[in-house]
């Protein structure tokens, strides 16, 4: 039933004509985008292009000055099935005072889905274990997070988002500064969620080389949307569209 009550035009995430900013200054103007089930969308743009502001609007943390947003067909502040949306914040700094294991962190991601006041069931434990294994952290599941590498910690946060078996995953720069092997594992995990579970993925990142081969659509943002199409289309028409090389991740330069 919840699955049916969805999505404007089949989109998990739908935004039209978003203008937003802080005070009187608009950081983004007339931005429209969609993420559909099973789609892997990358959002790129130079520093200060408005990516973070756009994410805040999409997730309901900032009210736009104009335009509308729908998450699973509902306005962000009326969207209550939050577990359907997995969110991986930008480089979450978790300097835990008290040791906390990967499993304990990942289990937090399951709270919204089962109801935070309910007991953990066998199904919850299976989902948590599955999330841990999908990011290849099975061997260190019971180790304290602060004993792991930055890349492993980042994968633990992705697993936390996976634990609720989300239908839409939004990741804010999750692989920046992470070693190449970890980037590869992150990519495989995202691909698994997308292909096996039909989830939509919105990845905001400067470093797309690790996921270049799995991106369905790329959106270039610089205050407004400069381009929205497949990577191949961007490679073919990017320059003629007037997109400056600085606006694009390095890997695209090779395609041009």
């Amino acid at each position: 039933m919840a699955e049916a009550a969805v999505e404007i035009g089949g989109s998990l995430l739908w935004a039209r004509g978003i203008t937003a900013g802080y005070g009187r200054e608009h950081v983004i103007e007339r931005v429209s985008l969609d993420v559909r089930p099973g789609e892997f969308v990358a959002l790129v743009g130079p520093n200060g292009s408005g990516k973070s502001t756009l994410l805040r609007v999409l997730l309901g943390a900032l009210r736009p000055d104009a335009g509308s947003v729908a998450l699973f067909g509902a306005e962000p502040d009326r969207f209550h099935a939050r577990w359907r949306l997995g969110y991986v914040p930008q480089r979450p700094s978790l300097e835990s005072e008290v040791p906390a294991t990967v499993r304990e962190i990942v289990a937090s991601g399951r709270l919204r889905q089962r109801g935070w006041w309910r007991r953990e069931t066998v199904e919850d434990r299976t989902a948590i274990q599955h999330a841990i294994e999908s990011v290849d952290l099975g061997d260190v599941a019971d180790q304290p997070l602060n004993e792991l590498s930055v890349g492993q910690q980042q994968r633990a946060f992705i697993a936390r988002a996976f634990a609720s078996e989300p239908k839409l995953l939004v990741l804010d720069e999750p692989i920046a500064g992470v070693d190449r092997a970890s980037q590869r594992r992150c990519r495989d995990s995202l691909l698994h969620l997308q292909r096996e579970h039909g989830a939509g993925v919105l990845l905001v990142s400067h470093e797309l080389s690790a996921v270049a081969d799995v991106i369905d659509r790329i959106i270039v943002l610089k205050r407004s949307i400069l381009f929205d199409g497949t990577p191949a289309e961007l490679a073919a028409s990017g320059v003629s569209l007037g997109i400056h090389a600085d606006d694009l991740p390095l890997w695209l330069e090779g395609l041009r």
Binding site: A61, S108, L111, R112, W116, R160
Partner: peptide, 16 residues
């Protein structure tokens, strides 16, 4: 479990 989640990563818990 929920207290652990919010004291460990309050910003994430809010977004969640």
């Amino acid at each position: 479990r929920v207290l652990f989640a919010i004291v460990t990563d309050e910003a994430w818990a809010r977004a969640e």
